[in-house]
């Protein structure tokens, strides 16, 4: 029943845009322009500041995987500029989900990504995924108050639950270039 209602809504609303070829083009163009204008009105201005804005930042927590289980290093947490780069999902879709809860166990948000311990290569006919290759990675969380517990779900199963320690919101500037394989080319 739900499926039929879905199709009906799509047809009814879409049909209003498709009454004739000429009107279709005109209305479609207007709808595209509406979407473009909507995005333009929301996109704001580029901000070059290196300072951490507490209302727009995210945390990184170090994690490792030994092939069997995940270990979280909660002694290291890093606050970084910019909002969490992942879209929140009502239902997670990708194999590695991160769910975060408040002290009462209420779900504050969740997102999913490709498994961070895997390598992937897109080439038809060849091996495409090497699982468990990456042993060290980061878990990103929005820098918001109230996150108490974090749950990792890998392949549909709970893989780890950890408690986020109290964090200090401070400006963190990483001006080091301490990896021998990296070169500053600026």
């Amino acid at each position: 029943m739900k499926k039929y209602i879905s199709i009906l809504i799509i047809f009814l609303v879409s049909g209003s845009f498709l009454t004739s070829c000429g009107q279709e083009k005109d209305k479609s163009k207007k709808e595209v322009e509406t979407a473009v204008n909507k995005i333009d009105s929301l996109k704001g201005k580029f901000n070059p500041s290196a300072a951490i804005n507490p209302s727009s930042s995210h945390w990184a927590v170090h994690a490792s995987f030994d092939g069997q289980q995940y270990t979280i290093d909660t002694s290291f947490t890093d606050i970084r500029a910019g909002k969490l780069p992942y879209i929140q999902e009502e239902k997670t879709s990708l194999p590695f989900a991160v769910k975060y809860y408040d002290a009462n166990g209420e779900l504050l948000g969740q997102y999913s990504i490709e498994n961070p311990t895997s390598l992937r290569s897109c080439e038809p006919g060849k091996e495409a995924v090497k699982p468990g290759v990456i042993s060290s990675f980061e878990i990103l969380l929005p820098a918001i108050e109230g996150i108490q517990n974090v749950q990792i779900v890998a392949g549909g199963k709970e893989a780890k639950v950890f408690q986020l320690p109290p964090l200090r919101r401070e400006v963190k500037s990483n001006n080091s270039n301490d990896k021998p394989d990296s070169t500053n080319v600026n």
Binding site: H58, A60, D78, R80, A81, P85, L140, N177, S182
Partner: peptide, 8 residues
Amino acid sequence: SNSSNLSF
């Protein structure tokens, strides 16, 4: 080496 600055 600056990967932590790219996570945005």
